[in-house]
Design a protein around this nucleic acid. Structure first.
Lengths: 214, 214
DNA sequence: CTTCCTGGGATAGCGAGACTATCCAAGCAG
DNA sequence: CTGCTTGGATAGTCTCGCTATCCCAGGAAG
């Protein structure tokens, strides 16, 4: 198919597709003549993933390019590829280590990882942007006066661990090897809105059960 | 304290504080003379909440104003105030009901709510932006070929329900009446980054346990 | 062969959002 | 009175994600 048809089938304007091609989010089509290029089902699939990352995941274009670069790097193993995708996602800015809230948050997160027995997370802590994001988020809550500590967070950690185990079980049983990497990205980025929506719905439901709709 | 001190203590530039005052995110200070106004600890606290909403929660300024409007409306009950805050948050665009992925997603979400017994969520489904967000997210995953159905989502729903119950328990035992509304907003917006970070850390940990670091 | 039309590439512009820099007038301090 | 600070208003800046325009090289119709 040519650019016009790719646009038609994906619902993305030709101008935007050209933009993604320029930005390297989409590999160029096969050149047929000097003025025409041919696109295939792989381009369509990639284009849908790009749109999902940007629109549903809210991932900036530059970040999406980085994430997709890791997806395409077949020299990496599963964990690394998943990790690379996760690490490339937008992360919190460097925390100010002089801020007492940050110091306290870091201490609580460390205690949390210890109590959960997450050894890998502890080892990678100094490097991992995910770890840093957690510290920043906890520090923000503490600065507002909500003193989240390891004991409070541990049950949530256990619950999220259950979620992660389920996702990897699903991935192992349902995805072919070629699909696994893309599924890793989908899990990391696209499943989060589902989880967030479920969380908010559960909050509404539980609040209504306890206090009524008033 | 005056504007300069408020800026100093919050780490937010005076220009930005003036911007928030203009936008109605921060109530004006008490006018002392024609040229000076006095700010108090309440302003500092509100300013920190605003920054947290915008920077940590990624909430647009216009939306933050709306959310804070509900926080300040003392005529509302707990559930409504929590709901108002949740509903004001940025939500997915209207789904295209002609898209088969959207139709299928909506059917699966309805089945999910039925199997979970979330009656309130079912009643409010046609109105709730949260419900719509869930449909859009599931539809996006389906369009990419990941056929999430009610059976797959139910365990996540149960887990998120456990999270929500914990949060409301915490809110009931730890927050004074005046703090509860702000805590509702904090739960809705600021706790989500914590949950997301825990989720990603759990993914890394579980992936490393299963496949090693390679 | 020529003319018109289409597909594709490059460039510049647009609109929203979140600040940010500048200017200004009113005090109050010395 | 002079100069410095405070607060208010206005316009500018910067980034991001597109989007509209221009241009040229074919290929097809006459």
């Amino acid at each position: 198919m040519r650019l016009a048809e790719l646009s038609e089938r994906s619902g993305v304007s030709t101008a935007t597709i050209k933009y993604y091609l320029r930005e390297g989010l989409l590999p160029p089509g096969h050149r047929v003549t000097a003025t025409t290029a041919e696109y295939d089902a792989g381009h369509l699939r990639r284009l849908r993933l790009v749109r999902a990352l940007i629109q549903v995941g809210g991932v900036p274009v530059a970040t999406a390019r980085e994430v997709l670069g890791h997806v395409d790097d077949e020299s990496l193993g599963r964990t690394v590829r998943l990790g690379a995708a996760l690490w490339a996602l937008p992360h919190a800015p460097e925390p100010d280590e002089d801020d007492p809230a940050v110091v306290a948050a870091r201490a609580e997160v460390d205690r949390l990882l210890e109590s959960l027995g997450w050894e890998t997370a502890r080892e990678l802590a100094p490097l991992s942007p995910v770890h840093r994001s957690l510290v920043v988020a906890v520090a923000t809550l503490r600065r507002l006066g909500y003193l989240w500590d390891a004991e409070l967070m541990a049950p949530y950690g256990e619950l999220m661990h259950q979620v992660a185990r389920r996702q990897l079980d699903f991935m192992e049983t349902h995805a072919s090897p070629t699909e696994q990497v893309e599924l890793a990205v989908a899990s990391a980025v696209l499943f989060e809105p589902v989880l967030r929506a479920l969380h908010r719905l559960a909050q509404e439901e539980e609040s209504a059960r306890r206090y009524g709709i008033e």
